[in-house]
Design a protein around this nucleic acid. Structure first.
Length: 290
DNA sequence: CCGCGGAAAC
DNA sequence: GGTTTCCGCG
C-alpha cells in the first residue's frame, strides 16, 4: 500500500549509475548555476533545490474540463515534466542515443496499444536503452555502463550539494526537442490534451494544441517568446536529420522515424486505464485523467 | 493558421 | 550543434 521512499531513491540512483558517471564526486561545486530550475533538470539536485514556485505548481488539478490551455496547467505540466518527480527523471534516461532500426520493424512486432515501461517499477532498470539501429543516427553509442560502480548516497543532507555533470551526452538539462516531445507524449498531463498519438505504432503524433506545446517547449528552454512558428522550424530541421517526418495533408501531424524501446503510449481510448504489467499494489496516487 | 526551407544569430 | 529568430513564399 505504501511505497517506501528508499526504494524510489534506490531506483533513481541505481538508474543514474547505469548510464551516468558524474555522481562519483563527493560534493564538489563545479560551478554555480544561476537558475535553479535549470539545475534541477540535471536530476541530481532535485529534491532539495525545488523552487517555491514549483511546489505550488506541482499540485496539479487532475483534470480541468476546460479546453482552454490555462497558464497554470501548462506550467504545472512543465514542472511535472522536467523535474520534481522521480518518474520523469528516469524518463530522461531513456533518451540515450540509440534508435530503433526502423519503424517498420516495430510495427511487425506484436506490439499492443499499451507498452509497459520501466518507470516507477523498481527493478526494471536495465531497459533504459533504445534499440540500436542504423539510422543516420547522428549519435552513436558504444557502451555506456562500463564497470563504473558509483554508489550514491541519497540522504536528506541539509546542505544542498550542487553537482554539474560533464557527460558527453545530454549536458545539463539538454533535452532535445524531439526528446521533449516524447516526454510530452508520455505525460498524461498533456498527452491527450495538447499532444497525442494518432498512430502510436507508426510514431505519428499530432500537436493538438500547437500553441500550448510550443509554450511548454519555450518554458523548458527558457525562451519565453517561443511559439509554434519557431518551434516548427526546429521541427522541420529534423526532416533532414532523419528524426522526424511530416505527415503531409494533416496539419500539425508529424512522425518519428524511430521510437524508443520502452515508450509508454497514451492513447485516447486508454484514458482511465493504467498500463501495468504486474499487479503490484498501486500506491494511492492514482488519479485518472479525463 | 500551417508549412516550407534559406540565412544568420545564438 | 541544436536550435532560435526572421523572412518570403505557398
Amino acid at each position: 500500500m505504501l511505497q517506501q521512499p528508499e526504494l524510489i531513491f534506490d531506483f533513481a540512483s541505481d538508474h543514474f549509475n547505469s548510464s551516468q558517471v558524474y555522481l562519483e564526486y563527493p560534493a564538489v561545486v563545479v560551478e554555480q548555476v544561476p537558475h535553479q530550475h535549470l539545475l534541477s533538470y540535471t536530476g541530481l539536485t532535485d529534491e532539495q533545490s525545488q523552487t517555491e514556485d514549483h511546489h505550488e505548481l506541482l499540485k496539479v488539478e487532475p483534470c480541468e474540463s476546460g479546453e482552454e490551455e490555462t497558464m497554470e496547467t501548462l506550467v504545472a505540466a512543465d514542472s511535472l515534466l522536467n523535474m520534481d518527480c522521480v518518474d520523469t527523471l528516469s524518463l530522461e534516461q531513456h533518451y540515450s542515443q540509440a534508435f530503433l532500426p526502423s519503424l517498420s520493424d516495430v510495427i511487425t512486432a506484436p506490439v499492443t496499444q499499451v507498452t509497459v515501461s520501466a518507470e516507477g517499477v523498481v527493478g526494471a532498470i536495465d531497459q533504459s536503452q533504445w534499440l540500436n539501429g542504423e539510422r543516420p543516427a547522428a549519435q552513436l553509442q558504444s557502451k555506456k555502463r562500463a564497470g563504473k560502480k558509483a554508489r550514491h548516497r541519497r540522504a536528506e543532507s541539509p546542505t544542498p550539494d550542487i553537482k554539474v555533470k560533464k557527460d558527453k551526452y545530454n549536458k545539463g538539462n539538454t533535452l532535445y526537442l524531439w526528446q521533449f516531445l516524447m516526454e510530452l507524449l508520455q505525460d498524461r498531463q498533456v498527452c491527450p490534451r495538447y499532444i497525442k498519438w494518432t498512430d502510436p505504432q507508426a510514431g505519428i503524433f499530432k500537436l493538438v494544441n500547437s500553441k500550448a506545446v510550443a509554450r511548454l517547449w519555450g518554458k523548458h528552454k527558457n525562451k519565453p517568446d517561443m511559439n509554434y512558428e519557431t518551434m516548427g522550424r526546429a521541427l522541420r530541421y529534423y526532416y533532414q536529420r532523419g528524426i522526424l517526418n511530416k505527415v503531409e495533408g494533416q496539419r500539425l501531424v508529424y512522425q518519428f522515424t524511430s521510437l524508443p524501446e520502452d515508450m509508454v503510449y497514451i492513447t485516447d481510448g486508454d484514458c482511465g486505464k493504467e498500463e501495468e504489467d504486474d499487479d503490484h499494489d498501486r500506491s494511492g496516487n492514482d488519479e485518472d485523467v479525463c
